Amino acid sequence: MKPFETTIVVTEHDLDDLNHVNNVRYVQWVNDIAKQNWEQIAPPTIKEEYFWVMLSNHIDYKQAAYLNDTILIKTYVSKSEGVKSTRIVEIYNKDTSKLLAKSETNWCLIRKKTQKPTRITSEIRDLFL
């Protein structure tokens, strides 16, 4: 499957005291694009029954982003087994194509009715292929 992509423009709200994008903002972008991707590809019947929670996140910061930079964010699922899924997020400066950060995040599928982890079905796994 082609990676899911979105673009954003850095605003003052994204900046830290050093006038570059705050590291916390990158974590928010990782969460946001995962949610956007799920909302776009999952049919309503699946979204009514399941949701994802973030278990762990590792980000390698490569370069800084600054006010008014246009940011390209790409994501794809690299592995899904049992109750866990691993999602990769790459964050680029769209104008220079330079990689700013790369994240590997582990997510757990939760059944809404029980609020407990549940095995990833083949139907859900196929959404990400």
Rank of each mutant, 00 (worst) to 15 (best):
T96V: 05
R111F: 06
T96F: 08
V10C: 07
A101G: 13
I8N: 01
E81S: 14
I59S: 07
V24G: 12
F4Q: 03
Q63M: 10
L67S: 03
K79V: 01
A65W: 02
N106D: 12
F128N: 03
E39K: 15
G82F: 14
H13T: 07
I59G: 05
K112G: 12
T45E: 15
S122C: 03
F4H: 10
Q36S: 14
K74R: 15
H58T: 13
E39Q: 15
P43Q: 11
T7V: 10
W38D: 01
N93W: 05
V77S: 12
D60C: 02
I33G: 02
Y61I: 03
K112H: 10
P3G: 04
S85F: 02
W107F: 15
N22V: 00
F4G: 01
E5T: 13
L99C: 09
S85Y: 05
V9H: 07
T11P: 04
M54G: 10
D14W: 03
W52Y: 15
Y76G: 04
Y92N: 04
V30S: 01
T75I: 06
T96S: 15
K2P: 12
K116Q: 15
F128A: 06
T96E: 10
Q115I: 10
N31S: 10
N93G: 04
E90Y: 01
M54W: 02
W107M: 09
V30M: 04
S85G: 14
S56I: 00
E12F: 03
L127E: 01
N23W: 00
D60W: 08
V53M: 12
I124T: 01
L67T: 04
V77K: 09
G82M: 12
K94E: 15
E12K: 08
Y50H: 15
W29Y: 05
R25I: 04
T114K: 14
L129Q: 14
S85T: 09
L129R: 13
A34Y: 00
C108F: 05
H13P: 02
K102N: 15
W38E: 00
R87M: 06
W38N: 02
E90K: 13
I33S: 00
K116D: 05
T96R: 09
N19G: 05
D32H: 00
D32V: 00
S122K: 11
W29I: 01
P44A: 14
E48F: 08
S97Y: 10
Y66F: 14
I124Y: 03
T7F: 07
H58S: 14
I71G: 00
N22S: 08
T6I: 11
K84R: 15
E49R: 15
W29T: 00
A34H: 04
D95K: 12
W52A: 03
T75H: 07
